[in-house]
Nucleic acid binder design. Structure first.
Length: 849
DNA sequence: TTTAAGTCCCTATAGACAGCATGTC
DNA sequence: CTATAGGGACTTAAA
């Protein structure tokens, strides 16, 4: 089918497609159009990655927008209806990163009158603004949240596209997608649903659920050769072989990477994507691959790579960042969730630009933004799984997704996906298990209690159902209902969940009728797991009840303090817990650890947390609040590594009065373990708000810079929710919660809160200003300009922006000389650095001891 | 003597959505 | 209840 023959699209679109070089539809796309895609027909397209799914979505959305709400145009003229009579399309993505990718893609239709908007947790276009958009891109959670908050424009939707719909199989996030689709269809029964799926076993079942036509195809625009490397050759699925000798002592993966770079017969340099099963493996593999790729980079590339490496170092001053930069300088990289998102983007972009020749990645990359590669090497096909209790083979679907990354459009004649085997038996098994195998069926995970807890409350709160029967009737529209062979099960779980929700005061019964309580409504709108909300409420109320007793306990600890502070000015570890961890793992150099943060001020009066107990008697304490939100199911906790158990057990006893709730006894094994991992996570947050350096935090907790951001974001969100709950329940901890939240938001100690709220001032600048004697917002307005300029290291423009943001009348820094600043205003930079060096040196000395 | 290869033991284990109100160094 | 790769420390074999 030719694009020129397409009907029902807005004026100019077929021509535009033609100009883009799309003259002929791919077979699956043509099939979709024949199935009625552009006439508003619902459709499930189960096709491989990179086989033109996006165009299928675009055709559906554009034609739906053109067709409009009232009546389908029969003339097929495609004249775009003016203004609000046009249809409205929603594109649901599984990841935030994909939302911006898709938005950028769809924006090329703007010149044809199609407005595109995005809505994710990060990047929110206000609800009103969205209602004027023709195409809206959002994550499934955001859509769910919009439904809960009754976003008016949802009712105007004429078309919904669900990308990667096979993710309804996901234990954690699948139910949200499933329920959201069911709700959208219920809001608008005529809704066109276009579901894009990987090739899965039961695509037909998914189509039945959505009352949709099915297009199922293995066709792909670039051929994919799948094979297994064993010995000195790859055996491909088409029967062909490729010699790739592996020298003695050499490993398979580097040999394959080198082989791809050697190319076939031209000077074509093939990039490789190596999938491994852990972050550490990704990093060490990248280190090895860098020695391979280094031999293939040209002089020009060397310079560009050096620059890229510098950009990477700029993102974050951590070991991860440094290791990545080192690999990148040689043309290789690693990629995993511990990276800062800027890191990821830099690596992905450079790989697409063919600057980076090889990425060693955890499975993140397979699900993320589009990063095609000449060769995909799946080094590890098993992964540790705690629930399973050992190494578990990857799902076929997952492996297929990875393999689908092979083949760069326009660059490669075909893509190659290679699994690695050490022996003939494994080779045969890999062929059986992954290459010849069809992907697993998609199975709904909706009947799991945690999923229903959230969604039943939301369903009641947003008025989709008012009785148990109503709920079951609603649930009957989900994929789960079409799949289950035990129809009773849903009813049983529903009853248990309703019971839970009632006991915790989120819903109440009036005879048959179920209603959400005011708190229940809030919880639903805040997008909290009801269990998290219950934990938070319990914790805050428990704290209110035990307040005076705990305050006394906290005060009772003071006698020991002065002594500890003199021999160790560790700002963040009241008590000697850090000492225990030194010996076990971190090798941190004694008390001068973090000395860098203190050295500037000298007077020690800013030693946040512990002083509070003595002077302000703040309760609940920040640590108590962080621990509270860290133990909710909405927070992903840090692992306890070896040695951590004793470290945090000790800390747990020291900080016992701060916890908001009863500490489980050590005999309650699982509960105690959870309590400790929550404590570890809370401690990370306490370090963060204690202004501990990023690299020190990553070192101490064994996390990457991206993990810190993630924990901080989540904590901020949960503390925001806690604040709302506290104010709604009229608890006087609201203020403490708000402050703890603000400190997490800015990553600063209490005394910097006032400064850090100013636009342009973050944790670092705030500290510099404070040390220079500029301690508050009003100081910014009144203090001597030379003093401020000196504190900001002479950055005039920055200083002006900051002063303006602080509301100073005359922010101009012209004619101001930083050297005019009084002696005490100049940040003691050398001291700053030497203190840090000293700390680092001692840390490395510690490693030898 | 130097270097490569082999062995033993220990350790650690993927990912990332959401409220609200505005902006890091 | 389930496994395995990597790295360091060390030993052994070859040059």
């Amino acid at each position: 089918m030719r694009t020129a023959d397409l009907t029902g699209l807005p004026t100019g679109i077929p021509e535009a497609l033609h100009d883009e070089g799309i003259e002929e539809l791919y077979p699956p796309q043509a099939e979709a159009v024949e199935a009625g895609l552009t006439d508003g027909e619902s459709l499930v397209a189960a096709v491989p990655t990179a086989s033109g799914k996006t165009l299928v979505a675009e055709l559906a959305m554009l034609s739906s927008v053109a067709r409009g709400v009232p009546e389908p145009r029969s003339d097929g003229s495609g004249e775009l209806p003016s203004g609000s009579t046009g249809g409205k399309a929603l594109y649901i993505v599984p990841l935030r990163a994909l939302a911006s990718e898709k938005k950028a893609e769809f924006e090329r239709w703007e010149e044809y009158g199609i407005d595109v908007g995005v809505s994710t947790g990060n990047y929110e276009s206000s609800g009103e603004w969205l209602s004027s958009r023709d195409i809206i891109v959002a994550t499934s959670e955001k859509v769910d949240s919009l439904v809960r908050n009754n976003a008016a424009w949802l009712e105007q939707l004429t078309c919904v596209v669900s990308d990667e719909v096979h993710l309804v199989d996901d234990r954690h996030r699948g139910p949200t997608l499933e329920v959201t689709l069911a709700k959208l269809r219920r809001l608008n029964p005529d809704l066109q649903v276009v579901a894009l799926s990987a090739t899965v076993g039961n695509a037909g079942e998914v189509a039945d659920w959505l009352d949709a036509e099915l297009v199922h195809s293995d066709w792909r625009p670039i051929d994919l050769k799948m094979g297994v490397h064993y010995g000195n050759a790859i055996s491909f699925d088409d029967g062909s072989q490729r010699e790739v000798p592996v020298g003695r002592g050499e490993r398979q993966a580097p040999a394959l990477v080198a082989d791809a770079l050697d190319g076939d017969d031209d000077d074509d340099q093939g990039s490789s994507l190596v999938f491994v099963n852990s972050r550490r493996n990704a990093e060490s593999a990248a280190r090895r691959m860098a020695d391979v790729t280094e031999q293939y980079i040209t002089g020009d590339e060397r310079g560009e790579l050096a620059q890229l490496a510098a950009e990477i170092r700029d993102v974050s001053d951590t070991e991860t960042s440094e290791d990545l930069a080192k690999a990148v300088a040689k043309g290789a990289a690693f990629h995993h969730a511990g990276l800062a998102s800027e890191h990821r983007t830099l690596v992905e972009d450079a790989f697409r630009d063919r600057l980076i020749k090889c990425i060693c990645a955890t499975p993140t990359l397979a699900a993320g933004v589009n990063t095609p590669s000449r060769r995909v090497i799946i080094r590890d096909w098993q992964r540790y799984d705690g629930d399973y209790g050992g190494m578990k083979p990857l799902d076929v679907l997952e492996v297929h997704q990875m393999m689908g990354r092979a083949g760069r459009p326009g660059l490669d004649p075909y893509g190659e996906a290679v699994l690695l085997a050490n022996d003939a038996d494994t080779r045969d098994e890999l062929f059986e298990r992954y290459i010849w195998a069809e992907a697993e069926d998609v199975r709904s995970k909706l009947a799991a209690e945690p999923a229903l807890r959230t969604h039943l409350l939301a369903t009641v709160a947003s008025g989709f159902a008012h009785t148990r029967e109503g709920l079951l009737e609603f649930l009957d529209q989900t994929l789960y209902a079409t799949q289950t062979d035990d129809p009773e099960r849903l009813g049983r779980v529903t009853d248990r969940v309703l019971d839970y929700l009632e006991v915790n005061g989120f819903i109440e019964f009036e005879g048959e009728r179920i209603q959400a309580t005011p708190v229940g409504h809030t919880v639903s709108r805040l997008y909290l797991d009801p269990m998290s909300a219950a934990e938070i409420i319990d914790g805050l109320e428990w704290g209110a009840k035990h307040r005076s007793e705990k305050l006394r306990a906290l005060a009772g600890e003071t006698p020991e303090k002065p002594k500890q502070r003199t021999d160790a000015d560790a700002d963040d570890a009241p008590g000697g817990f850090q000492r225990a961890s030194e010996m076990v793992s971190t090798g941190d150099g004694g008390g001068s650890d973090d000395g860098a943060d203190d050295s500037g001020s000298g007077d020690g009066a800013d030693n946040g947390t512990d002083d509070e107990f003595e002077t302000d008697q703040t309760y609940p304490t920040p640590l108590g609040l962080y621990h509270l939100v860290c133990r909710t199911p909405d927070m992903y906790q840090l692992y306890l590594k070896s040695g951590d158990r004793e470290t945090y057990t000790e800390l747990c006893y020291e900080r016992e009065p701060e916890f908001l709730g009863r500490v489980p006894t050590e005999y309650e094994d699982v509960a105690f373990e959870d309590w400790l991992s929550a404590l570890k996570t809370a401690k990370l947050l306490e370090d963060w708000v204690g202004e501990v350096d990023e690299d020190r935090i990553t070192e101490r907790y064994g996390v990457g810079p991206g993990d810190i951001r993630g924990k901080v974001d989540t904590a901020e969100w949960l503390l925001g929710a806690a604040e709302r709950l506290a104010s709604e329940l009229d608890l006087d901890s609201v203020y403490a919660v708000r402050e703890a939240k603000k400190r997490v938001e800015y990553g600063v100690r209490e005394e910097l809160l006032n400064l850090a709220g100013v636009r342009g001032v973050g944790r670092k600048r705030a500290r510099r200003l404070f040390e220079a004697g500029v301690e508050t917002r009003s100081d910014l307005r009144e203090a001597d300009k030379s003093r401020i300029l000196a504190a900001l290291r002479g950055r005039r423009k920055t200083a002006e922006n900051i002063l303006e943001a602080a509301g100073r009348k005359d922010p101009s820094m012209d004619d101001i000389d930083e050297s005019d600043a009084p002696e005490d205003a100049v940040p003691d930079d050398s001291g700053f650095e030497t203190a840090k060096e000293r700390a680092d040196q001692q840390a490395s000395l510690g490693d030898f001891e």
